[in-house]
Design a protein around this nucleic acid. Sequence first.
DNA 1: ACCTGAACACCGTTCAAGT
DNA 2: ACCTGAACACCGTTCAAGT
Lengths: 204, 204
Amino acid sequence: MARRVDHSHEELREMILEAAQNLVEVDGYPSLSMRKIGSSIGYSPGTIYNIFANLDDLVLQLNARTLDEMYVSLVKTKSNNSVEVNFDLLLCGYLEFVDANRNLWRALFDHRPSIENDLPDWYNARVEKLLNLIDDTLKPYFNGEDPTKLRKFSATLWAGLHGIISLTDSNKLDVISDADPLELCRLLVRNFLVGLNSSKYEEG
Amino acid sequence: MARRVDHSHEELREMILEAAQNLVEVDGYPSLSMRKIGSSIGYSPGTIYNIFANLDDLVLQLNARTLDEMYVSLVKTKSNNSVEVNFDLLLCGYLEFVDANRNLWRALFDHRPSIENDLPDWYNARVEKLLNLIDDTLKPYFNGEDPTKLRKFSATLWAGLHGIISLTDSNKLDVISDADPLELCRLLVRNFLVGLNSSKYEEG
DNA sequence: ACCTGAACACCGTTCAAGT
DNA sequence: ACCTGAACACCGTTCAAGT
């Protein structure tokens, strides 16, 4: 079996996350296990505990990588169009990412850290980076306004879209005949943006 | 140990679901197990397989009960106010139900039937009943219009709210300073309804 | 210092054997 | 006909023992 001389701590970390990613991609997050990861990299399961606190910790770090990859995909959609078109490009980019990485994307939300505590800062920083993409897109609607207000709108819209995508993904919107996620997302975005635009002068 | 003479098939079914509900309420869905259910009703785990196909099936039937209870709670919020007020009452009722039954509510969405197939009709009928409550509330905005259009709007709005509530529940919206679910939900509803109202004549 | 592998305390599910 | 309980094939996690 492998020994310290074979792989450095950092190499081992990489191998473990790589193996975990692969296992999730192929068989889905629910069937991921420490034992499978161990056997797929040729180490005993015990070794993984030298690098990760437990499976929860490992999955959280895998999810952080997924968020990094998502950011790389989404940042490419930036362009100089209207708010509506920019947002639609972002939305389509997100749906493409979900489609291409479904099991990794599911792991982002199916994983529930057992501690009821807050997520670690290094994780929230990734979420923050992604939310900033939405902020940038909606910013023209909020010229000179409180940035925390912008953030609240971005988060609300993003969470709303997440709801649509995750419910259609789990077949829980089958009660409506043809639940195309993109169509429903656009319905939400369009109405939300119209509402936002027509009410901002009253509230501003 | 208990025997056929002690409990009928129907009684046993009731005992199992009751025990499962209790275990989920107290310890959460992730720690529910066939063995725990068995021991809490004084039967061996094998007996449960006479009544339910497997754990997935059992949880789906537990979730159907939760949806029934939710319907009973929500139907009480019906009143003769404006669309906006009616919807807000429905929303508050939903949030109260989530608060009072958090672990059962989580089980509704954390449970992923392993078959990628559709959910059974008896389950979707419950979802349908709940969606009808939203349809009824929004109906005044869709006088004489295609009911499938109304349904699409209801489902979109409901899925959006679900996204906000589920992300705040799992601490995944902590990146915004004070993520009060009710406030964000109202933000979504208000803008969505304004957008819906101001665009319906163009599209209608 | 690092890694193993047995051990512990759990799982879901099946099924021969009992009543 | 119904129920048991052992059996099978898995888990996460720990830790004494080896190198």
